[in-house]
């Protein structure tokens, strides 16, 4: 399944946020991919996420594919919604 969102945390997918995303993505059986324009990367790879260089306001598309894709999608979205705990 696919879902588009806009990056809403101030620092974007920087090191700390990327670390959190990678750790989360690795918990799922499903593939988790993120794309920005033409570029699609594997969210289970820190290098992939960093090369995406997604900053505040950028639109990305999240794709989860596999047994637990719905659960994975919900969790990933909720991490983005929480702004990676940045503001707290």
């Amino acid at each position: 399944m696919k879902k588009k969102i806009r990056i809403s945390n101030r620092l974007g997918l920087h090191a700390r946020a990327s670390s959190k995303l990678v750790r989360l993505a690795n918990n799922f059986k499903s593939d988790v991919n993120i794309s920005k324009g033409e570029l699609a990367i594997n969210a289970k790879s820190i290098l992939g996420i960093l090369s995406l260089a997604a900053s505040l306001g950028v639109e990305i598309e999240i794709e989860t594919k596999g047994d637990d894709e719905e659960f994975a999608m919900r969790e990933v979205i909720s991490l983005f919604d929480s702004k990676f705990g940045e503001e707290s």
Binding site: A15, R16, S18, S19, V22, R23, N42, K44, S45, I46, L47, G48
Partner: peptide, 16 residues
């Protein structure tokens, strides 16, 4: 700790 964690993630990264 977060920097160290980040480093571990790079090491665990399958792409690299």
């Amino acid at each position: 700790i977060e920097i160290l964690d980040f480093n571990i993630l790079i090491l665990e990264d399958e792409i690299l």
